[in-house]
């Protein structure tokens, strides 16, 4: 059975602005129009949540510690070889 066509005009216009929606960078009118559409369109809601989770995953990535070798080189750069 054919799935309900998702790529219609409104969905595409929502899709193009999903990042600005997530970042709160839209004017109030556009934001509200998108919010109403997303509430009614599960496929757009899924797209939004997948993108939101992608952003959240990036923001929460663990930081690695600086290798000792680099730390020593930086110390040497500032203090020179004579200081501990």
């Amino acid at each position: 059975m054919a799935a309900k066509k998702h790529a219609h005009k409104k969905c595409i216009s929502v899709f193009k602005k999903l990042s600005e929606y997530i970042d709160g960078e839209l004017d109030e009118k556009t934001y509200e129009e998108m919010r109403v559409h997303i509430k009614e369109c599960v496929k757009c809601e899924v797209c939004l949540e997948m993108l939101r989770r992608t952003v959240d995953l990036c923001s929460n990535m663990k930081m690695l510690r600086v290798p000792d070798r680099l730390r020593e080189q930086l110390k040497l750069m500032v203090h020179g070889p004579s200081n501990p």
């Binding site: 054919a2 998702h6 790529a7 595409i12 899709f15 899924v46 797209c47």
Partner: peptide, 10 residues
């Protein structure tokens, strides 16, 4: 841009 065939979950 998602298309029908991509089957976005419902």
């Amino acid at each position: 841009i998602p298309e029908d065939k991509e089957n976005i979950p419902d």
